[in-house]
């Protein structure tokens, strides 16, 4: 193993250093700004100590948005995972029109979220959109899609599921496609049915990728902002206001840069702690259970 250290570093360092180089200043700056009162009227890095942080702890809207975000992000990611896995299994093996269906399943992910959000908003427009119109054709009453807390949340989740199930689908399909054949042959020889094969062979082999996919999607889903902005503006009232949307409102709408930085730093810390716990327990549960 001569010179292994050199090779070790050769692989890791270029990426790590470049990333650090790009991210270090913005991160440090954000932390510094969070101790300042930078806003529209007074730009600059004055020092106001922990004022922003003490304000934040008393800011009910932030904490509510955080728990709301938790509910929205978890629900959509779990739905996306289940649907994505199911779809990947459907088109993994031979299916008629396999190429077409696979391509079709990928497409929503390719669209720009903010643009699709505008389209979705027109779809759920309660008097001019097709959603209610089709319901009435089926003889059902119209649904207050965007003006009722429950339904507005449903719409936000639905749009996220539409857009990002393909992400899960692609990741899991690629995982399935790169699985070695031998275990499946062995299972077939043992006479295992499809369900037993899935739980004994497929799922355990897919566990690491599943954990990775869930974590990335949780991170991305937590940043949901543009969709909310376009579709509901956080309404009705504040019932679909998520943390990142709230940070956006405070930061770029109100232009309270200092306060938004404090919100973000807090959000970052909370997310890192939560995600570490989730990642660890997911790995333990899924990977160990399978293996």
């Amino acid at each position: 193993m001569y010179g292994l250290t050199r090779y070790k570093l050769l692989f890791l360092l270029p990426g790590l250093l470049i990333l650090l180089g790009i991210i270090l200043f913005p991160l440090g700056f954000t932390i510094r700004v969070s101790f300042s009162g930078w806003d529209a009227a007074r730009p600059g890095l004055d020092w106001i100590g922990g004022t922003n942080y003490s304000r934040l702890f008393a800011d009910g809207r932030f904490w509510e948005s955080l728990s709301r975000l938790g509910a929205i992000a978890f629900t959509s990611v779990i739905l996306e995972y289940l649907l994505g896995f199911a779809l990947a299994l459907l088109v993994w093996r031979q299916v008629r029109f396999r190429r077409l269906t696979r391509v079709l399943f990928l497409i929503p992910m390719m669209t720009t979220p903010v643009v699709m959000a505008v389209i979705w908003r027109t779809i759920f427009h309660e008097s001019l959109g097709p959603a209610n119109d089709l319901l009435s054709l089926l003889g059902m009453g119209s649904i207050p899609w965007l003006t009722n807390s429950f339904w507005a949340t449903v719409v936000v989740i639905l749009v996220d599921v539409w857009q990002w199930t393909p992400f899960m689908f692609l990741l899991l399909l690629a995982g399935l496609l790169s699985l070695p054949r031998e275990p499946f042959l062995a299972a077939a020889i043992d006479g295992a049915g499809p369900i037993r094969t899935f739980f004994n062979v497929t799922f355990p082999a897919m566990a690491p990728i599943s954990v990775g996919a869930l974590i990335i999607r949780l991170i991305e889903a937590s940043k949901i902002m543009e969709t909310v902005y376009v579709i509901t503006s956080g309404g009705p009232g504040t019932s679909t206001e998520t943390s990142s949307y709230y940070i956006f409102i405070r930061g770029l709408r109100d232009f309270q840069i200092g306060y938004a930085a404090a919100l973000s730093v807090t959000y970052l810390v909370i997310m890192i702690v939560l995600l570490t716990i989730i990642a660890k327990s997911l790995s333990r549960y899924l990977v160990k259970n399978g293996a």
């Binding site: 806003d39 529209a40 009227a41 809207r61 003006t147 009232g237 504040t238 019932s239 409102i249 109100d254």
Partner: peptide, 22 residues
Amino acid sequence: VPGVSQFMSSMATGVASAIAGQ
């Protein structure tokens, strides 16, 4: 006035919560 967006977005949030019945 300076910070007009803060005042207006605070007001809009209040008004929206009343319309939503919160």
